[in-house]
Amino acid sequence: MMETTSSNLEVEARAGGRRTPLLSQRRFWRSVGDHTVLWLGVLFMLAPVLLAFLTSTHDAVTIHRDGLQFLPGDHFGETYEAVLFGATGFTGKATGLVMTFNSMVLGIGFAVGKIVISMMAAYAIVYFRIPFATLAFWVIFTTLLLPLEVRILPSYEIVQKMGLLNSYTGLILPLIASATGTFFFRQFFKSVPDELLEAARIDGAGPFKFFVDILVPMSKTMIAAIFIIMFVFGWNQYLWPTLITTDEGYYTLVRGIKQIIQVWVGANIPEYGQAMALAILAMLPPILVVVVFQRWFIKGLTESDK
C-alpha cells in the first residue's frame, strides 16, 4: 500500500495519510469550497440538535412559553439527573437503564436479523437461476408498499396467536418483514464484477463458500451502512412496542420520551426539558454505533478489490 506513487491526493491520503506539500491555489480554493458546503450541511443538520441540547437545560415553563433556547440554562443538573435516575411508569421497572437495554436489544436484534436474512435472500435472487426469482423479488419488494400502521390490527392478532406478546421476538420479527435490506443488497450484488465469481469458481469455491468467504467480506461497507440505518430504526421504534407489550419491563427509550411529551394539551405543561434531555442521551448509543461502523467505510471494497 505504501508504494502507491499516484500523484492523486485523495488516494494517497487514504493510503497513508501523507500529504503533498504543494497545494496548487486552485486546489486550495476548491477545498475551501468543499469545506464550506460540508459546514453548511453540518449546520443544517446539527443546529437543531444543538438547540435541543441548549433547550434541555431550561425548565419546562420557559420552554413552553418561549420555545427553543439559544443559551444554556441553569436546569442542566436537575433535568439530567431526573432523566438518568428517575424511573417512569407505575412499577418502577422502567428505569433509564432498562429502557436503554430494551432499545439496544431492539436495535441490534433488528439490524442483525435484517442483515442476515436479507443478504441471504438477495444472494439467492441475484446469483442463482431459480424459477420465480423475479417473482420472489417482487413478493419481497411489495412489503415496502404497505406500512405497519395500516396492517397493525391483523399483525397484532398473528403475533398474539403465536404467543409472542410481551417478548423480544414478537417485537423484532414483524419489523423485519420489509424489503429494504433485500433490495439494497440486490443492488449491490448486481454491481459486483462477474470476474470475481469466475475467479472463485476456478478456485473451486462452491456457492456457500463464495458467499461466506468472498461476498460477505466484500460487502463490509454496505453492511456497515445498513447496520447503522437499521440499528437506529430499531432503536427508535415506538408504535409497535407500545402495542404489543404491556409489561413495563419492555419499555423503550422512545416510549419514555413520548410519555413525557404527551400530556393532554393545556392541562399541564409537558416536561419538555426532560424529553429533550432523554432524547440527547438516547442519541449516544446510536452515535457510538456510527463511530464504530463508519471505520468500515474507509475499508471495504477499496482494499479488497486488489
Binding site: 485523495e10 437543531p48 440538535v49 415506538y238 424529553a275
Partner: peptide, 28 residues
C-alpha cells in the same frame, strides 16, 4: 473528497439520524 476532517464530517452528518423521532418532530 475532502482530506481534512473527513471522519468528523461523516460522524456529524450521520448524527441527526440518531435522534428519537418524536423529539426530532418536536424540535422541527
Amino acid at each position: 473528497t475532502v482530506l481534512r476532517g473527513a471522519k468528523s464530517y461523516r460522524i456529524l452528518l450521520m448524527w441527526v439520524y440518531a435522534i428519537a423521532p418524536p423529539v426530532a418532530g418536536l424540535i422541527g
